[in-house]
């Protein structure tokens, strides 16, 4: 997978989580996803259009999402599924929005759509004209997963996968 497309997502995740949690986020694992990614908890999906078509899934354990919400509120929040969903959707919006801003500043052209709750068990896997990546971030309040799926074959895509990636 093209590193210049992925690095902004790593930087954006690190920056957003650091600001929201006032603590660093460390990349614990990066893997090309040959098999289908499985959702870990509460997840939001953000569609990307432009030089490449794709999706990014932002996935947290429910408890982790509630801890983020609690960290912001300065107190424990009601352990409602709705609160966790809201938190994950807005975090996904901020991470992907920041990443796309970085990509556009580098000369790419991408637009993002508003986040949608991702309730399916499966995520995105690589294929003949697509690539998928799973990243796991360690944070002081739990693990955060990112599943990035880029489809180079769709109409509108102007980039190709990196050779031997």
């Amino acid at each position: 997978m093209r590193l210049e497309l992925i690095q902004p997502f790593i930087n954006a995740t690190d920056a957003v989580l650091a600001e929201m949690l006032q603590a660093p986020a460390k990349v614990a694992q990066v893997a090309m996803d040959e098999a289908v990614y499985r959702r870990k908890g509460v997840a939001a999906s953000v569609a990307i259009h432009g030089d490449i078509e794709g999706h990014v899934i932002f996935d947290l354990q429910t408890e982790t999402a509630l801890r983020v919400a609690g960290a912001l509120a300065g107190k424990e929040v009601d352990p409602k599924e709705e609160t966790a969903r809201e938190t994950v959707c807005e975090l996904a919006n901020m991470v992907v929005g920041n990443a796309v801003t970085l990509l556009n500043d580098q000369g790419h052209t991408f637009k993002v759509l508003p986040p949608e709750l991702h309730t399916a068990e499966k995520g995105y896997a690589g294929g003949r004209q697509s690539e998928a990546l799973v990243m796991c971030f360690d944070t002081p309040i739990g693990k955060v997963y990112l599943n990035i799926g880029l489809d180079y074959g769709r109409q509108g895509s102007t980039l190709a996968p990196e050779a031997n990636a």
Partner: peptide, 8 residues
Amino acid sequence: VSSVGYQE
């Protein structure tokens, strides 16, 4: 106040 802060 937006997450998408590109020039456009």
